[in-house]
């Protein structure tokens, strides 16, 4: 994953292998130790909170794959999360509660939705792409709201978490926590490998200059569509886990605000770094948790904070870390 002879215009992350190993390792080590901390402090809610953080981190990773590596700014990623969640909810309401059924259905449904919508969306560029993904996200939202047999606007309660081959493993918070952690790790490693592969290099090449990649003989559209479907399935996985974590499914999972939050998480952490998405999701949700405990009007603090981060910090939290780490004023990962 560390090509020594990276092309001159490759994302600089790849040319600095040490940082891309150390920081993610630290992040995952910290996540693995959260349950120990939760028990030491006898703060059981921490387990729930960080389960949530990791689930959103998976969704944020899928957003980072598209925005950070393919310059496909998607404003409808929450739809895939919702589809994954609804797969769990709808199957459960018909008595199908095993992972063996629910997970493949969640992945296939979200992947299929990505394939069909991506086919249309990828015809457009830039801002128009943002808006057309938003349009499909809203269509999914309104479809979910109209599913009268499955709760409609009010959403759907999932009676019990999915079983694993008949065993109620997900019911134990600690087991479920590590299941989510493993899922996050798998998605992260998969994306890391994907980004470093030939496939990833074509995507990044098209991000910088789609015309050049086309003239080099790559059918950019196909690569982008594949990336869109992969990201959609990762979103579906996040939805699958979210439905299990909250034992509730609602159209609100697909709202455009949720899609916006996913983008913010990625930008907050640092775009085009992958582990930045995890850090961003954690920062966003922990800040939300902490500030909302502080005051009911926490958004009055959170909003200006976002503005300050954008105006004064480039490259998100990872960017700050990188800037601090490198005393010499070289360019951050965003470039």
């Amino acid at each position: 994953m560390t090509p020594a002879a990276a092309p001159a215009d490759a994302v600089p992350v790849l040319t600095r292998p040490r940082r891309t190993v150390v920081l993610p390792a630290l992040v995952f080590a910290a996540l693995a130790l959260v349950p120990a901390g939760a028990f030491a402090l006898s703060a059981g809610y921490l387990l729930d909170l960080f389960t949530r953080v990791m689930i959103f981190a998976i969704a944020a990773l899928s957003v980072d794959l598209l925005i950070g590596y393919a310059a496909l700014v998607t404003f409808g990623q929450a739809a895939f999360v919702g589809i994954g969640a609804y797969a769990v909810g709808i199957l459960a309401s018909h008595g199908l509660t095993d992972v063996v059924v629910a997970l493949p259905v969640a992945l296939l449904a979200s992947g299929l939705f990505a394939l069909v919508t991506g086919f249309v969306c990828l015809r457009t560029k830039g801002v128009y792409f943002i808006m057309i993904t938003l349009a499909f996200g809203q269509m999914a939202f309104f479809t979910a709201s109209s599913l009268a047999p499955y709760g409609g606007d009010d959403g759907l309660t999932v009676q019990e978490r999915n079983t694993v081959l008949g065993l109620p493993l997900f019911e134990q918070p600690l087991v479920f926590y590590y299941v989510v952690l493993v899922a996050l790790l798998v998605v992260y490693l998969l994306f890391r490998a994907l980004v470093a592969s030939r496939f990833g290099r074509v995507l990044r090449g098209a991000k910088d200059n789609a015309l050049r990649m086309t003239t080099l003989g790559f059918q950019v559209y196909r690569f982008q569509l594949a990336a869109y479907v992969i990201a959609g399935m990762a979103g579906g996985l996040a939805g699958f886990l979210l439905a299990n974590a909250t034992e509730f499914v609602s159209p609100a999972y697909m709202s455009w605000q949720r899609s916006g939050e996913l983008i913010i998480m990625v930008l907050l952490g640092g775009l085009g770094t992958l582990h930045g998405a995890i850090v961003g999701a954690a920062a966003f949700l922990l800040l939300e948790e902490w500030l909302s405990a502080l005051t009911e009007h926490w958004k009055m603090i959170f909003g200006p904070l976002l503005v300050l981060v954008v105006v004064f910090v480039r490259g998100g939290l990872i960017g700050i870390g990188a800037a601090l780490a490198r005393a010499a004023g070289r360019r951050g990962p965003r470039g």
């Binding site: 916006g260 930008l267 958004k299 959170f302 909003g303 976002l306 503005v307």
Partner: peptide, 20 residues
């Protein structure tokens, strides 16, 4: 553009809350 999105999203959060 993404910087615009995040900053103006922050302003939305602030003003919605401030109005409340």
């Amino acid at each position: 553009h993404l910087d615009h999105v995040i900053a103006t999203f922050g302003i939305i959060l602030f003003l919605n809350s401030a109005v409340k």
